[in-house]
Design a binder for these strands. Structure first.
Lengths: 223, 223
DNA sequence: TACATTTTTGACTATTCGGTATCAAATACT
DNA sequence: AGTATTTGATACCGAATAGTCAAAAATGTA
């Protein structure tokens, strides 16, 4: 049973996708309603009728981004799960996440969208809005938190497998990797990293996970 | 011999400082000329006469930020040098840089400005502008590059002192630390980190510098 | 005092912004 | 055919935007 009324001329899924990419590329403030009308093909009235306003449209685009990057499953609302991902060694998964953050499209993560803007919409939005908009900040934090928790499960898995030292803490490691990913996203937005740079950075990051923390620099906490 | 003409009512150094802080807090697009007039105390005409326009004012504020954070010396145009800094062990300096990026004011770095906005203007600008504005992107890159080079000298120093493994590469390590600092700045802008989080992250970062890279994960480069 | 110089002051402009209202066109249902 | 419903299309709004201009006021100098 189809719904009545004049049929939309443009596919709304695609329209939201284009809007998301525009926000991703240009940021919120640099994206005007006119830009959104152009890149989506929707008309102004339709956007306001179906979403409410620019801010709400942005929130919808943010949601789309998070779903699209599979930080949460659109159906089950569960943490990221990929069949290919679960078969890989956990530290190899971490490596793919890092490479992905640095700008390398990853089949393993199911993130193969050619011509995607550099960087990350979550990172960009975190920087652009900070804590000024409650709803937006909250969604960013939960999105990053979901990723962090997933990194935790990977690192816990690696820990039980003995691939990381017994004294290492997966929670700390996960936050460390998440922070590093944010940095990679910032650098990627400024200039695409070379494969050599990426290889070196990834190697150093993985090394920090799989070497014992031991004696080093206990004087770091003497203040 | 004073210069003729009506004397300015507000100190221009302080005005530029306030403008910088406003750009730092709110970003470029979210800062209107009216905001700048309010926070600087200067009048619109004066800003346009003395700087040229909003963009040029921003560039001046960016320059001020870089000078203020001592990434380059305002007189000699040389790399960062602080007497207190050169007396510290290099890895301890790295630690202060990391803590500073995470939001901890540091006397050692001469960066004790209370009530500074969270995060980093370079990071924010890199994210907001990306590569859209040539001049701005260039200044951001040179600013970050100066910091990176300084981190390199610290890590080279640590290397010759034997505080890092013989097989480690200071250039790679410096870029790694710089990237991590960007990530810390993003996270700091979203939410201030707890001292525990900072301690853990810093410890993990320093550990990655001072442990041998050895056997680990040679399969990272098999593709 | 008269003049040059510099900043203040406030009015002004053209454009763009997000948002609204209205009506026509296209479809489904009865 | 007629009606309800949904979207397309377009004109429009007040507010905010970056930027301009022309004086007036305040200083040093001759």
């Amino acid at each position: 049973m189809k719904k009545p009324g004049r049929p939309p001329t443009v596919n709304r899924n695609n329209a939201l996708e284009q809007a998301m990419r525009h926000f991703w590329q240009e940021g919120y403030e640099r994206t005007s309603m006119e830009d959104l009308v152009t890149c989506t093909g929707m008309h102004k009235g339709s956007i306001y009728r179906e979403f409410g306003g620019k801010r709400e449209f942005f929130l919808a685009a943010l949601e789309r981004y998070i779903q699209r990057q599979s930080f949460t499953d659109s159906q089950t609302q569960q943490t990221i799960k990929s069949t290919a991902l679960s078969t890989l060694p956990p530290l190899k998964c971490i490596e793919f996440f890092l490479r992905f953050a640095a700008g390398v499209p990853s089949e393993e993560l199911g993130a193969v969208h050619p011509e995607d803007p550099p960087g990350c919409l979550l990172t960009n939005t975190a920087v652009e809005f900070g804590n000024t908009d409650k709803d937006i900040a909250e969604r960013i934090e939960t999105g990053l938190s979901t990723l962090r928790v997933f990194l935790e499960t990977l690192l816990t898995d690696a820990h039980t497998r003995g691939e990381t030292p017994s004294e290492s803490d997966p929670v700390t490691q996960a936050r460390f990797i998440l922070t590093l990913m944010q940095g990679l996203r910032v650098m990627a937005r400024l200039r695409p990293a070379t494969t050599e740079e990426i290889n070196h950075t990834v190697a150093l990051a993985l090394q920090s996970l799989s070497t014992p923390c031991s004696q080093v620099l206990s004087h770091s906490f003497d203040d």
